[in-house]
Amino acid sequence: MPPRSVPPADDPIRPDPSSAVHVTVDGVSRTGRAGQTIAGILLTSGELSWRRTSQKNAPRGVFCGIGVCFDCVVTVNGQRDVRACQRRAADGDVVDTQHDALPAHPADPTSRLSADGGGGDG
């Protein structure tokens, strides 16, 4: 099971009604609760990972959750390397996931161009 929001009816803190926040992630619209971080919205919309590493193309999502590890970085409104766990979502935010290919080896200037999705500078 992926992470999920605590259903308000079951929550021991007895939450007041909260409003929704709408963002798009890689062009798909996602809804979270107002005040959620982008990581919170991603996690509760079924994504456990949203970044691929440069060396091994390995999946990453939230690890430290407090802005230290940078595993969760995404592009927000064209701005790269935003820590999803630290940035509160604002209505209409355009979020793009990042898959950063390695820089080209000097001897092989074409390798970067052929890399799948390289850069993700969105």
Binding site: R4, I13, L43, L48, F63, G65, I66
Partner: peptide
């Protein structure tokens, strides 16, 4: 490094700061 492995602090921050259960 697998997704789904968190620090204990991450689980705590998501629970207290967003009411998100990590699993």
């Amino acid at each position: 490094e697998l997704p789904g492995v968190f620090t204990a602090g991450a689980a705590q921050a998501l629970a207290k700061g967003e009411r998100v259960a990590v699993g």
